[in-house]
Simulated scan of single mutants.
Amino acid sequence: METALHSFFVSIPQAAALWLVILLAIAVAAVYVALPRSAPPRPLTEAERDKLRFADEVAVAAERAAATAARLRAEWATAQEQVDAAWLAFDEADRRSRETTQAAAFPLMSRRRKPGENADRQRYLHHAAIAACRNREISMAQLNDVLAHRGWNPRLHPVVQEGLLRNAIRAHRMSQYEDAQKREQAAWVESELAADALRSLRAEAAAAIVRSATAEEPAGDEWFADQWATGEMPATKAYA
C-alpha cells in the first residue's frame, strides 16, 4: 500500500509537466493559426506598370531639377559675393577721389613751364592711365579716351591729372557695381524659376506614387520627406 502511494505522488510532477508541454504546444498552434495570411502577389496590369513607369520618370526628372536648382543657387551666391566685392572697390575709389578733391582746394603755384614740360605731363598722364587700365581700375574705352585726349588735357599739372584719373576710376567702379547688381538679380530670377520647377516636379512625383499605390512603391516615408526638403531652395528675395 505504501509503495503504491509513493508511486502515485512521484508521478504527479511528471504528469503536470506533460500537461504544461501539451498546453504550450496548443497555444503555439493557436497563435500560428491566428496569424494573418498574406495573399500571393498578383501580377501587375498594364495600367499599373504604366503608372509605376511614369512615377519613376518623374522622380528622375525631379532629381535632375534638384541638381539644377542647387547649381543656380550656387551661382546666385557667387553673384552676391561679386556685388559685395564691387561695392567695396567702389567705396575705396570714392574715398580716394574725395581725398583728391579736398587736396585740390589748395591752388597750385603758377610758374613758367620749362621746355619739354608739356611732353612730360602728357607722358605722365599716359603712363598713369595705362597702369590703371592694367590694374583694371579703368576700362579700355576710358584708356582710349585718355590716349586720344578726348575729354583729357595732357598739359594739365600731374596733380590735377591724378585727381581726374581718380574720378575716372570712381566712375568705372560704380559701373562695375551696377553691372554686378544686374547679374545678381538675373541669377536670383533663374534660381527662383528653378526652385519653382523643382517644387512642381516633386509634387507631381508624389502624386504619381500615390496613383500607383496598387503597385510596389519605389520608396518609403523617408523618400516623401526628402521630396519636400528645402535645403537647396534659395531664400525668397524681392526687388523693388
Rank of each mutant, 00 (worst) to 15 (best):
R95I: 04
S175L: 15
G116W: 02
S139C: 05
V159L: 06
K182L: 14
N118M: 09
S139T: 14
H127R: 14
W188Q: 06
L165R: 07
I138V: 01
P158R: 01
G151C: 01
H127W: 13
N144I: 10
S97T: 04
N135R: 12
R150E: 06
P158N: 01
W188I: 04
A187L: 00
H149G: 04
D84A: 11
R112K: 14
D120I: 12
A119I: 13
L165H: 07
L88I: 11
R173T: 03
Y124Q: 07
L88Q: 08
E99N: 03
E162T: 13
H157W: 07
D120G: 07
W188N: 07
I130R: 12
L108W: 01
S97A: 10
L165I: 09
M140P: 15
Q102W: 09
R173D: 06
P115S: 12
R150D: 10
A148Q: 05
R113A: 13
V146N: 12
Q142F: 07
W152A: 00
R95W: 04
Q102P: 01
S110Q: 07
R155A: 13
M109Y: 07
A85W: 03
W152K: 03
A148C: 04
Q122M: 12
Q161K: 02
I138E: 01
D145R: 12
N144M: 08
A171E: 14
E137L: 15
E178H: 07
P154Q: 03
A132F: 00
R183K: 14
Q176M: 11
S110K: 12
E99M: 12
H126Q: 13
F106C: 04
H172D: 08
D145H: 06
I130Y: 06
E137H: 13
Q176W: 14
I138P: 02
D145Q: 15
Y177R: 11
Y177W: 15
H157F: 14
A132W: 00
E137G: 15
N153E: 04
R113C: 10
V160D: 05
A148T: 13
E184T: 05
A186T: 07
Y124L: 02
K114N: 14
A104K: 12
R173A: 11
N118H: 09
Q161E: 02
Q161G: 02
Y177Q: 08
A186D: 01
E184I: 03
D94C: 09
M109F: 13
E99K: 05
S175R: 13
E117A: 02
A128F: 02
R95P: 02
W152M: 01
L164T: 06
M140H: 12
Q122V: 06
R111Q: 05
I130N: 15
G151R: 02
N135I: 07
N118P: 02
P154M: 02
L143G: 08
R150L: 11
G163Q: 11
I169W: 11
M174P: 12
F90H: 09
E178R: 10
T100N: 05
W87P: 11
V146C: 08
F106G: 12
R155C: 12
A103P: 04
S139L: 03
L165Q: 06
A171R: 14
E92R: 10
Q122K: 05
E184H: 05
A119P: 03
R155P: 06
G151T: 03
Q142L: 09
R96T: 05
L147C: 01
E162N: 11
R134W: 07
L125R: 01
A131P: 06
N167Q: 06
Q176S: 13
Y177T: 08
R134D: 06
